[in-house]
């Protein structure tokens, strides 16, 4: 089963993302912060896709993207930013950090799954 890691400090977003992705046939690993996500990855996790929030309390999403690009197991893993942030500057910053795409909350489940399937086909 293909696995998607969702990183967000909002329990509501984590719950809804888990429900949407699992219904589409993906396995889901949740992390409520960038640090928690890195702990999972250091513990051997190898997600097929990472979806991360941008504005989180300690490590922000862009810093997490930079960290993920340093790890061998996520160097080429697609990373989607899922955020309420809509500024073009931030998008550009995320792109430079190594993010693969940008999704503005709230997102319709069908739209999200369409993008996820594009990134991780064959769930």
């Amino acid at each position: 089963m293909k696995t998607v890691m969702v990183v967000d400090d909002s329990p509501t977003i984590l719950m809804s993302m888990e429900a949407i992705l699992m219904r589409a046939g993906y396995g889901v690993v949740k992390a409520d912060s960038g640090e928690a996500a890195l702990r999972v990855l250091h513990g051997g996790g190898r997600p097929n896709l990472v979806i991360t929030d941008l504005n989180m309390h300690a490590m922000n999403g862009i810093d997490l993207v930079r960290s993920l690009r340093q790890l061998p197991q996520t160097r080429f893993t697609p990373i989607l930013m899922l955020t309420t942030e809509s500024s073009l500057d931030k998008r550009q910053e995320a792109r430079s950090a190594g993010a693969t795409g940008w999704i503005v909350k709230p997102v319709q489940p069908d739209d999200l799954i369409a993008v996820v399937k594009q990134m991780v086909p064959g769930a």
Binding site: D8, S10, T12, I13, M15, S16, A19, I20, R23, N55, T84, K105, P106, V107, Q108, P109, D110, L112
Partner: peptide, 20 residues
């Protein structure tokens, strides 16, 4: 039943947007 539930999963994100 899955379709409205899927919509609910999307709509519930309003809480995070409202929180911010």
């Amino acid at each position: 039943m899955r379709a409205p539930l899927n919509t609910l999963c999307g709509s519930i994100q309003f809480q995070d947007v409202a929180r911010q």
